[in-house]
Design a binder for these strands. Structure first.
Length: 269
DNA sequence: ATGGTAGCACGGCTA
């Protein structure tokens, strides 16, 4: 089955681009980020008319995630556990059952974390965006530990807002102090990898020049001034089923594109 | 240090 992740940057503005991509790529399952819509006003027909089941976890104006799937979505949960005061819609889970076995899927939109506010000791200022990002990642690690205990194939995918390595940015120096690349962010990401996850894209493709996001400004895409921040992480059960993983770079050249492009993986399921 | 673009929704935040 083909699973994918796509930060669409606003479902209301991205209908045509999303339809184009669904018809061309034909994913069996996809997670969407930054739908920027509440559930009631999400244009469901666009997706359901193509034979997909759809589960949304929306929010007014910002954030918002969704899962669409040709197979029924079971055991759907919304929200990242660990802080009842956190109302931002950034996390959704579901299970799909295939004749060859089941797959648990996470769709996530990890906080950006900018601007980075530090105190005199260089610690993130409590209540600031960067402190929120790191606290959110700690909660995410705890949730991943619980999901790993299920001992079934698991795909954790979305907009991580993390540049894992220097080779994942065209100009790494420009990002060195940014919340997407500074060391504590990458350390928190690595801690999660070390729980036993495989970066599906890096399991298939080595070297620089592969990006999933380009700023709308200053012709960044035309200059390939991008970063790789959309990731598919697979636990060992799922990694053993990995057949392909690619970034649909061409989507960025289409009409009215998102600033992200889809990433997808083929699993032997 | 600023400005450059885009979405949501109609002001100002977020990225």
């Amino acid at each position: 089955m083909k699973i994918a992740s796509f930060n669409i940057n606003g479902i209301k503005a991205r209908g045509a681009a999303l339809e184009r991509w669904l018809d061309a790529a034909q994913p069996d399952l996809a997670v969407l980020q930054e739908i920027k819509s509440i559930d009631d006003t999400f244009p469901r027909a666009l997706i359901e008319d193509r034979g997909y089941h759809l589960e949304t976890h929306g929010q007014k104006g910002f954030n918002g995630v969704a899962i669409l799937s040709k197979l029924p979505l079971e055991d759907v949960t919304r929200g990242l556990p660990g802080d009842d005061d956190d109302l931002q819609a950034r996390w959704i889970e579901a299970t799909v059952s295939t004749p060859k076995g089941a797959l648990r899927v996470v769709g996530l939109y990890l906080p950006n974390g900018n601007p980075v506010e530090l105190d005199a000791d260089g610690q993130p200022v409590p209540g600031g965006k960067y402190a929120y990002k790191l606290a959110w990642m700690a909660r995410m690690e705890a949730r991943l530990r619980d999901l790993l205990a299920l001992e079934m194939p698991l795909a954790v995918m979305g907009d991580y807002n993390i540049i894992p390595q220097a080779e994942d940015a065209a100009r790494p120096e420009a990002w060195r102090k940014d919340a997407l690349f500074r060391l504590p962010s990458r350390q928190a990401f690595r801690r999660m990898l070390h729980l036993g996850f495989t970066d599906a894209f890096r399991a298939q493709t080595q070297g620089p020049g592969h990006y999933s996001f380009w700023d709308y400004q200053a012709g960044a895409f035309e200059r390939n001034d991008g970063i790789r921040i959309d990731h598919i992480l697979l636990n060992a059960y799922a990694a053993d089923l990995l057949q392909h993983c690619q970034i649909d770079t061409a989507e960025r050249a289409g009409e009215k594109p998102s600033d992200h492009v889809p990433i997808w993986a083929e699993l032997a399921l």
